[in-house]
Design a protein around this nucleic acid. Structure first.
Lengths: 210, 210
DNA sequence: GATTGCTTCCCCCAAATATGGGAGAGAAGT
DNA sequence: ACTTCTCTCCCATATTTGGGGGAAGCAATC
């Protein structure tokens, strides 16, 4: 028997999930909440905690991604599966890094969700096809070799970013075309799994690069 | 009538300045000293203080730059104009940060100095009447008002920036309009003298904010 | 010789951002 | 009462950035 919790702000989705899994043999919906805050409040009243969580990202108050760590801390044995409309690399990466074990895109048929959750319960994973693809692509370039190691030129560019320079000024500083700067930065973003200058600066100054 | 004080160790320069401004209508040289120490001593004897100071940097004893703060403290309403041979950015930066409102290089024709001082008295600057004022304001975060201290809301916004959020996401996080976020960020930029998210992130993570 | 990785440059396009205005409401201090 | 500050929101416009392609020279490696 799988005891699942659902955190989802959209009422329709919430009720559909609740109704569906309540009917499925082997499943028991033990907690349904529309926000992380509400979830924690309800959690107090439960005798036995859920073993799996379906978690949305767009939530009022604390976002689903922000909540993953505290959820995992509070419920060490729970499997967290994201169920969200965001299929972009950034959210996927953040969620998985924070501790989510699965990532399903909204629109996935209920039966698919069911089988995915069964997979999770058996120690597998639950990912929508193209999410899985992105995940694979993430770890492919990184696991073959030097991983997130930036090339010398890329390190230079990062220095420029930390100094708050625009693409154009970086190009001037290193006497290269602005297009080259753009190319380097795009590559840096892919390696670091970010997508803005600010995030690169933040990582660098936090010592997360090098 | 502009009452000016002159602190200059080089005798020739001192006398030339004294003689020149004594002759100019609307000007009154009320104090001439060859050092900061001597200036403070003479200041005791004056009934009404100078409204403007011509200050050298190379001085015996306390340097002109070191003296700026104590001078400004002693004479809150005085405009301090540097008159020095040092035209390097370091000295300029130090002087302006300390509170000097103008910065003239030695060799400036007397009539130019005169018009520069007139500009200062009229709320301008003594470097080049319209670019100069911006330069001054650039180096002096907020001389007139509440300094570079960020408001609570602005600190919140900075947190959002450090987390790599876009304007829209910051707006969502704090439940305010994206326009409000833009306004706050514009104000932050002005206070910190930067003009990009990355620079704010860099300053914050370097501990230069707070 | 072929593949791979690094650097260099170009195109296009949509979105985000920076910059300059203005404006009103409420709180706090003068 | 008046000013100052903070927070809120809006408009317009120009530039920058992010994301998607592709391509070419070069060095190292296989």
């Amino acid at each position: 028997m799988m005891r699942i919790g659902i955190i989802e702000d959209h009422q329709d989705t919430r009720e559909v999930l609740h109704a569906f899994f309540s009917q499925q043999a082997g499943f028991e919906v033990c907690l349904v909440a529309e926000s992380v805050e509400a979830f924690f409040a309800e959690l107090e009243k439960l005798s036995s905690p859920p073993s799996l969580l379906l978690l949305d990202i767009n939530l009022p108050g604390i976002s689903g991604i922000e909540a993953i760590k505290s959820l995992a801390q509070r419920l060490p044995d729970v499997d967290i599966v994201m169920l969200t409309m965001h299929d972009d690399s950034r959210h996927i990466f953040q969620a998985l890094c924070a501790g989510a074990i699965g990532y399903l895109v909204k629109g996935t048929p209920l039966v698919k969700i069911k089988s995915a959750l069964l997979n999770v319960q058996q120690g597998g994973s639950a990912m929508s096809p193209h999410v899985a693809r992105k995940v694979v692509e993430y770890f492919q370039p990184g696991k073959k070799k030097g991983d997130s190691a930036l090339t010398p030129k890329e390190h230079q560019i990062v220095e420029g970013l930390v100094d708050g320079l625009s693409y154009k000024l970086i190009a001037d500083r290193y006497s290269i075309s602005i297009e080259t700067v753009r190319t380097h930065i795009k590559n840096i973003y892919k390696k670091l799994h970010v997508n803005s200058k600010s995030e690169v600066v933040a990582m660098k100054l936090r010592g997360e690069i090098d």
